[in-house]
Nucleic acid binder design. Structure first.
Lengths: 359, 359
DNA sequence: ATAATCTATTCAAACGTTTGAAATCAAGTT
DNA sequence: AACTTGATTTCAAACGTTTGAATAGATTAT
């Protein structure tokens, strides 16, 4: 009793139970300004009844009426990539004080899902959308629909400012240079490199930073020791790629004392491959990665890597989104800004001076 | 032009543009049965206009009217625990063909967030809720509200059937026994054990299985070699716990040839701790874990572990949820079932016969 | 010629809220 | 006796959609 067909308790259930109008009940329970004028006793009675019946306002009805959904769509390209998780946490954290909620969807690297979820986010009237980098993103024609419906977008992990989209990303060039200089400072001169797949936008600038830093240090790469991961790699396949390339490095006969891998999982694959061949890390060969994901931290030896401040990037994206929302409410014009955050070198035990443990 | 204050294109925008009523437009765009009677030419015109204006139906208005939200709330206790991610993927996969969407929230092990998000899920009128195990869950009084509002629940990762909640979990007892028997079959007799925290429901049955299998094999644990993780450990702290206990094992002076850790991150911590003390894994000591999370797979040596079929568990939970929804639509009574799935031993290189590499 | 059937479209009410405007009533002021 | 004031509560419309019932016109069957 006290419940309608839908199974949910509504304002009118409470109104009936209290012999009051729906308006009064709404005013009290939504703590509208008018509730100052509602008699204390009435207020108490309404609140007690609401609690007793287990009332929770219907977000659908409320949002429809208020024309605000308090929702930000978050489109992650692949939640099983440990890269995504901290970014999402950062977004949630930023959203929290603003009383917004994230509507998180996981495209699982699939074009079809990406479109489907994008549409869903639009239908659920997210007030804004944060996209965590995905190559698929560029191609979708839903982008046009987003604009037609005036929904602001922020992207994390790549630069789409030329498409007039506010972008948050790490300075890959600086990161590449940092890790290269680290190896140089340890005294490595013969370094194998595994570049990222063409399709990933991080690949080019990271490689650029590496090359520049190497040139500055007077280091030349042996072409037998430069590898490139294939496209469409999921997070597991970059591990396998690293392992495979490790074997090829050894087979090539070229001398090397360190391996600079595109990302941490690749680096972990290299460690596996070299270890299987009997080498000791870092005694016989140093291995460094990029990203600082959880497995890099908990593996032994810990992988020296470049930390992207992922959580902070998520928070920054949220902040920018909230700004954009305020501006669009005030009908101000929006500018698509570019926000480049600086990465940080995290030295662990997978890197050491060449040719010696204790040295 | 063609857009209202809210910024979103509505049916009436399209109706106006086509000189038709909102009803007709709705009938066509929602592909209602009546659309058979709408002239082909009209239909085409409406669809073209909708596409041109970038129309997407308002899920809020639609759900309000249809009294169906096509939403299942998914409450994960901590997305940064690698345990959660595959379960969530499995849920999404199960939901997909049923045309449902998940509303995923991350409680980050915080009671406050848990309540907040639970309330949010209720307000967003999720038709059902899947909870990924959390101790907080038991305490919340929102559980009563869920029942008052007739929202079915399924829980993954623990048994709450006595609370009349359908539960999906792994057979921890069997898993504990499996991993213990594995060490026994390799010939280990002196085994250090790190038990899970009291607060985690997995701890007791897992320990029970271990003890039973040990007893069957005639193995007794040295009390100096039995440790227990503290409560409230986040995923990172179980790593630190493992590392710490590894040192204590060595300091205790007791002899041991293998360590059986509560979960994979603890095992990785043990590997770190033992390695730092100069031991080689698995030559000097075997280390085994539980869960089969990503880091256990990509570390070197790979951690021998018990795989929980997490993805499958997520899919099963979804299936049970969809069943429950059908039953509640048909007004059938619901039974709270218990579904125990079997874990699987995954042998990697962190375990070997005691006291030797090649043997 | 009337009724029945079919086609193509529209009306109007409803979903559960919110909110500006209005109503009611008591008490105080002119 | 009429008027203001203030406190408390209610009316009614709106948000964007769906849908049972109604309409108008054309065709066919009796």
């Amino acid at each position: 009793m006290g419940q309608r067909e839908s199974g949910h308790v509504t304002l009118s259930d409470i109104a009936r139970a209290c012999h009051l109008s729906v308006s009064t009940v709404s005013i009290v329970l939504s703590e509208a300004p008018l509730s100052r004028h509602v008699a204390e006793s009435t207020r108490k009675r309404i609140q007690a009844t609401a609690r007793r019946l287990g009332y929770h306002p219907d977000a659908y009805a409320r949002s429809l009426r208020r024309r605000r959904t308090q929702t930000i769509g978050v489109l992650a390209y692949d939640m099983s990539d440990p890269f995504c998780v901290p970014v999402v946490s950062g977004i949630d954290e930023g959203l929290q004080p603003a009383q917004y909620f994230s509507l998180l969807v996981n495209a699982q690297m699939q074009r079809r899902l990406f479109d489907k979820y994008f549409r869903m986010i639009l239908e659920r009237r997210a007030e804004g959308v944060i996209v965590i980098a995905s190559w698929v993103f560029e191609e979708t024609d839903l982008l046009a629909d987003i604009e037609k419906n005036h929904v602001p977008i922020v992207i994390v992990g790549r630069d789409l400012t030329q498409r007039r989209i506010t972008s948050v990303l790490v300075d890959n060039r600086a990161g590449g240079a940092l890790v290269m200089r680290h190896l140089d400072s340890l005294g490595h001169r013969h370094i194998a490199v595994i570049r990222g797949p063409d399709e990933m936008f991080d690949s080019a600038p990271r490689w650029e930073g590496i090359r520049q830093a190497a040139a500055d240090a007077g280091i030349r790469f042996d072409s037998r020791l430069v590898f490139q991961l294939p496209n469409l790699s999921d997070s597991k396949s970059s591990f396998e790629g690293g392992r495979q390339f490790a074997k090829e490095m050894l087979a090539s006969g070229a001398e090397f004392t360190a391996v600079l891998a595109f990302d941490d999982l690749t680096a972990l694959g290299v460690v596996r491959g070299l270890t299987e061949a009997g080498l000791r890390i870092p005694k016989d060969c140093s291995v460094v990665g990029f990203d600082d994901v959880l497995p890099a931290d908990v593996a032994t030896p810990g992988i020296t890597t470049i930390r992207q401040p992922l959580r902070e990037m998520g928070m920054l994206a949220t902040e920018l989104m909230l700004q954009a929302l305020q501006q669009s409410q005030a009908n101000e014009t929006q500018e698509a800004g570019l926000y480049v955050v600086q990465p940080e070198l995290v030295v662990r035990t997978s890197s050491a001076a060449p040719g010696g443990g204790g040295e």
